[in-house]
Write a protein that binds this DNA or RNA. Structure first.
Length: 195
DNA sequence: CGTCAGATGATC
DNA sequence: ATCATCTGACGC
């Protein structure tokens, strides 16, 4: 499968996010098919980490398209974001869920020996399966060696709805339907809130 | 099926 | 103090 080039990511996050469903993300021996994503963008979205402007942590969100923004959530979970749009704009796609394509054994080991379905529903599980951490922040996806993104099998149909876990944001932004998922996949979190 | 508390650490 | 979460415990 072919690697996604920089141009794929150099569009608005609302175009890139749904296009990423069905694409594949790889790191080392692990390859996953993306099944659920969310878009974040500042200005105009108080759910976005960049809502208070540039800080050491959010600097990566303003970086060039096709690079990683990985942050630690609740002190436990490594959350993978894909930076989009032109450099200087704060946009990223959060990879929320995926199916295991390759590296089943390694993923099971990282998950503490849990063996079972190929569905990884939830962003913490995606980061854990890939074995990534915040040190990947700033790395490009379109070059070999790090986290890589490949063209995959687009979903037959997408479902969309509001994003998850952003109670701190203004009501209007909480309601934005900026979450997309593969309608036919079992690897989707909070499925009830989607249509 | 549901709700709930605890884990755990960077950030501003 | 807050937080783009997960898991296991417990109740129905």
């Amino acid at each position: 499968m072919s690697r996604l080039g920089r141009a794929f990511f150099a569009r608005d996050v609302l175009d890139v996010a749904p296009a990423l469903v069905g694409m594949q993300v790889g790191h080392g021996a692990v390859r996953l098919r993306i099944t659920e994503v969310e878009a974040y963008r500042w200005p105009g979205d108080t759910a976005c980490h960049a809502r208070h402007g540039r800080t050491p942590r959010t600097e990566a969100l303003f970086g060039p398209p096709g690079t990683a923004y990985v942050y630690l959530c609740y002190g436990l979970h490594q959350m993978l974001n894909i930076v989009t749009g032109e450099e200087g704009s704060a946009q990223a796609v959060l990879v929320r869920s995926a199916e295991i394509v390759d590296g089943h054994a390694l993923v099971a080991e990282r998950r503490g020996g849990r063996t079972g379905p190929d569905a990884l529903a939830g962003p913490g599980k995606v980061g854990q399966a890939l074995g990534i951490d915040t040190r990947a922040t700033g790395q490009p996806f379109y070059e070999p060696g790090g986290i890589e993104l490949f063209a995959g099998t687009p979903a037959d149909a997408l479902v969309r709805g509001p994003r998850v876990g952003i109670d701190y944001a203004e009501a209007a932004h909480r309601a934005l339907p900026w979450r997309w998922a593969d309608a036919g996949s079992r690897a989707v979190s909070h499925r009830k809130k989607l249509e």
